[in-house]
Simulated scan of single mutants.
Amino acid sequence: MERTHPANIFVCECITQALFRLMKRKPYHEITVTDIVREAGVSRNSFYRNYQSIQEIITQFLEQKTSEWWNEFITCPDRHPHVISEMFCHFLNMKEEIDILYHAGLSYLLMEHIIRCGKLSQTGEIKNTYQTAFMSGGLCGIVNEWIVQGMKESPEKMEQIFSKQ
């Protein structure tokens, strides 16, 4: 079954929500596939049809949320011209999940995601330049510090800070 099939999308959402609920209650490294499928109310087969590991649930969640945000951003006729502040808005919209990841010691998954996204061009091609690596690394540092400090500064303020780097 493809991940675009409505039933499969629903199963993936159930699994993702179950993992985040479990991560609120117990340490990530203690969560098992059995815990997740019980919490989600799905079968082990459903899990393994969609994921190879528990970590993959998180990476796919980040990819999906970013893809949804980006598609909305580029198609909005009156979008904000500053992609950096819009990106910080995107992270604010995922604050609960990001807080859970940081509490679980999984901040590196968000940083890896940012770097992967930085290497993709608008056409989906991989860019492999030093400038891209530099910008992605700087963005990771600023995003990480912003999250650690409690996401207090506005997205517009964060864009100003990033632009000065």
Rank of each mutant, 00 (worst) to 15 (best):
P81L: 05
Q52V: 04
C89D: 13
D78L: 12
Y48H: 13
C89W: 08
S85H: 02
M94E: 14
I54L: 05
P81I: 03
S67V: 05
S53F: 07
R79F: 01
F61Q: 06
I100N: 07
F91T: 00
I84D: 01
I57Y: 02
I54C: 06
E96P: 04
L62D: 06
N50L: 07
F91V: 01
Q60C: 07
H103I: 08
Q60I: 07
P77R: 12
E97V: 02
I57W: 02
I100W: 06
E56A: 11
E86W: 00
H82A: 11
S85E: 15
E97Q: 15
F61V: 05
T59S: 11
L101E: 04
Y102D: 09
F73N: 04
I58M: 01
H90M: 14
L62Q: 09
I57S: 02
F61D: 13
I58S: 01
Q52A: 09
M87Y: 15
Y102W: 14
K65D: 10
F47C: 04
Y51M: 08
I58N: 00
M94I: 06
F91W: 15
W69I: 00
M94A: 09
K95N: 10
N45F: 02
R44T: 11
N71P: 02
E56Q: 15
H82I: 14
T59R: 08
P81T: 04
T75F: 00
K65Q: 14
F91N: 00
D78T: 13
W70P: 00
T59G: 04
F47D: 02
I54A: 06
E56V: 05
Y102H: 12
T75R: 09
F91C: 00
Y48G: 05
Q64L: 13
Q52H: 08
H80V: 03
C76P: 01
K95M: 09
A104M: 11
F73Y: 15
E97I: 02
Y102G: 04
L92I: 13
I100F: 06
V83A: 14
T66G: 09
A104N: 13
Q55I: 06
C89Q: 11
I100Y: 07
R44V: 04
H103G: 11
Q52K: 12
P77G: 08
V83R: 07
E56L: 05
H90I: 04
E72R: 14
N45S: 14
R49T: 02
I57T: 03
Q55N: 08
K65L: 03
P77I: 11
F91P: 00
N71I: 05
E96T: 14
T59E: 10
T59Y: 03
S53M: 08
E97A: 10
M87W: 12
D78F: 13
F61W: 15
I74H: 03
P81D: 12
I84W: 00
P77V: 11
Y48F: 15
N45W: 02
E63L: 10
E72D: 13
H82L: 11
T59N: 05
S53I: 07
H90L: 13
I98A: 09
E72K: 14
Y48D: 09
L62K: 09
F88S: 02
S85L: 05
F91L: 15
S46C: 00
H90G: 12
Q64H: 13
W69G: 00
F47M: 08
C89P: 00
L62P: 09
